[in-house]
Amino acid sequence: MIPRLLLSAVYFGLGIIIAFVPENTTKPFRLTAEQMLNEVKYRSEMVSSDELADWMVNQDPSIQLIDIRTPKEFDQFHLENALNIPLSQILDEEWIDFLDQGIKMNILYSNGTTLAHEAWMISRQLGYENNYVLQGGLNYWTETILNPSAPSPYSADDEIAKYEFRKGASQYFGGEMKSTNESKKTKTDKPIIKRRKKKKAPQGGC
């Protein structure tokens, strides 16, 4: 009878310990280093400023701009309809539904690309899929879309066509960047949440 009591005591003890230690909630990485390298290598997360301008001019409803900079910078200037998620808050519960969804294409931007890329990498590690980075950031956006410089007359045709497009876009966005400053306080609706399946979990079944 003694071994049974002993065994019961051991299980009871193990149970008590596991009941009261906090659960291990460390979220492990979803992508291995190799997978990450591959994504970075192909730059598939990049969206060029021309592409973005085109979508914005056409008011494509499927894009969601996300400003990664601080609220202060955001208040000074931000792109139309952008949502402000400062990098330091990217893990906050309230943004999960925006960042982790399968409906809209999130385009992250900062002044350059560093902050946006950092945010993008974090989101990738969490396994989120619909996030992209604005190539060159706001600086390049201003340079190419808001104040495009005319190409030399000897440029190739497509260079000139690109300039024509940028000039048009510049007018659409109000030419000088200051005039875009009317910050619309429209809070965009939360997209419908798409729950992702657990990746790579083996298929069960008896």
């Binding site: 299980y11 193990l14 149970g15 596991i18 230690v21 659960e23 291990n24 460390t26 979220k27 492990p28 657990k198 790579k200 979990a201 083996p202 298929q203 069960g204 079944g205």
Partner: peptide
């Protein structure tokens, strides 16, 4: 069953197993 439960939770506690990758039927 209880050995399995305890085993999995302790392995997870010590970071030896990632419970997110365990198949839950």
């Amino acid at each position: 069953a209880i050995t399995g439960m305890i085993g999995l939770l302790y392995l997870s506690l010590f970071d030896w197993i990632d419970l997110n990758l365990i198949w839950v039927n």
